[in-house]
C-alpha cells in the first residue's frame, strides 16, 4: 500500500457514494446511465470472487464488500425504486458490443488459463470501458448535472492515481501487471476529454454542457 493507491481507492469510494447520495437526495436518477452501473456491477462481481478463496487484509475485504453492495444498491435505485426517473431513451449505448468482445479477449489474452484468472481479466478489461454508456448519454443529451460531473471526475481520478501507484510499485517493488496497466491507461484516457471540460467549466462554477 502506498499513498497513491490509497488516494485512488478513496477517490473510487467517493465517486460511488457521490452517485448514491445524488440519487437518494434528489429521488431521481435522471442523467445516470443504468447500463454503466450494470457494467460496473459485473466488474465487481467477477473480480472479487477471490473474497471466497483468499483473505488479504481487513481493508481489502471491507472495500470489496462496500464496492459490490454500493453498486448493487445503485442498480436497484435506478431500475426499481426510481425507475420512473430513469432516462432510458438516452441510455442507448449498445453495452453488449462491449461485453461480448471483451469476454473473448479475456479468454485469449490473460496471465493464466484458469476460470478465476479469466474472470479477473474480463473484469479489468470491462472496467476500462464501463463508463462509455455514461459518456455517450452525456454527449447525447449535451449536458450533465454538476454532481454527476463530480462523480465522473472522482471516478476518472481513481484510475489515474492507480497508474501513479503502478509506476511507484515498479520502482520500489519491481511489481507490474501489464494487463492492469494497459487497461488502466485506456480507462484513464477515456476520461481526458471530460477532465478538460470539468476543469474549464465546472470548477469555474458553470454547468457542464458539451458542444453538440
Amino acid at each position: 500500500m502506498n499513498i497513491f493507491r490509497l488516494a485512488g481507492d478513496i477517490s473510487h469510494l467517493l465517486a460511488i457514494f457521490i452517485l448514491l447520495i445524488k440519487i437518494w437526495r434528489s429521488r431521481s436518477c435522471a442523467g445516470i446511465s443504468g447500463k454503466s452501473q450494470v457494467l460496473f456491477g459485473m466488474v465487481f462481481l467477477t473480480r472479487y470472487l477471490d473474497l471466497f478463496t483468499s483473505f488479504i487484509s481487513v481493508y481489502n475485504t471491507v472495500m470489496k464488500v462496500i464496492f459490490i453492495l454500493a453498486t448493487l444498491v445503485t442498480i436497484y435505485l435506478v431500475f426499481f425504486k426510481f425507475r420512473a426517473t430513469y432516462d432510458s431513451n438516452n441510455d442507448t449505448f449498445r453495452a453488449e458490443l462491449l461485453v461480448i468482445p471483451i469476454a473473448g479477449l479475456a479468454v485469449l489474452v490473460n496471465h493464466e488459463f484458469s476460470l478465476f484468472e479469466i474472470l479477473w481479466t474480463f473484469s479489468i478489461y470491462l472496467e476500462s470501458v464501463s463508463i462509455m454508456p455514461q459518456l455517450y448519454m452525456i454527449s447525447k443529451t449535451g449536458e450533465a448535472e454538476t454532481i454527476t460531473s463530480h462523480y465522473l471526475f472522482a471516478l476518472g481520478l481513481y484510475r489515474g492515481l492507480y497508474i501513479v501507484n503502478w509506476v511507484w510499485r515498479y520502482y520500489t517493488e519491481q511489481f507490474y501487471d501489464w494487463i492492469a496497466i494497459v487497461a488502466g491507461v485506456v480507462q484513464t484516457l477515456l476520461y481526458c476529454d471530460f477532465f478538460y471540460l470539468y476543469i474549464t467549466k465546472v470548477i469555474k462554477g458553470k454547468e457542464m454542457s458539451l458542444p453538440a
Binding site: 500500500m1 493507491r5 481507492d9 473510487h12 477471490d50 483468499s54 488479504i56 487484509s57 481489502n60 472495500m63 470489496k64 464496492f67 496471465h111 493464466e112 484468472e117 479477473w120 492507480y162 501507484n165 519491481q174 511489481f175 507490474y176 501487471d177 492492469a180
Partner: peptide
Amino acid sequence: WINRQIKDEL
C-alpha cells in the same frame, strides 16, 4: 512478476 493467487489491488 505477477502474483497469480493473491491480488491485493482493488
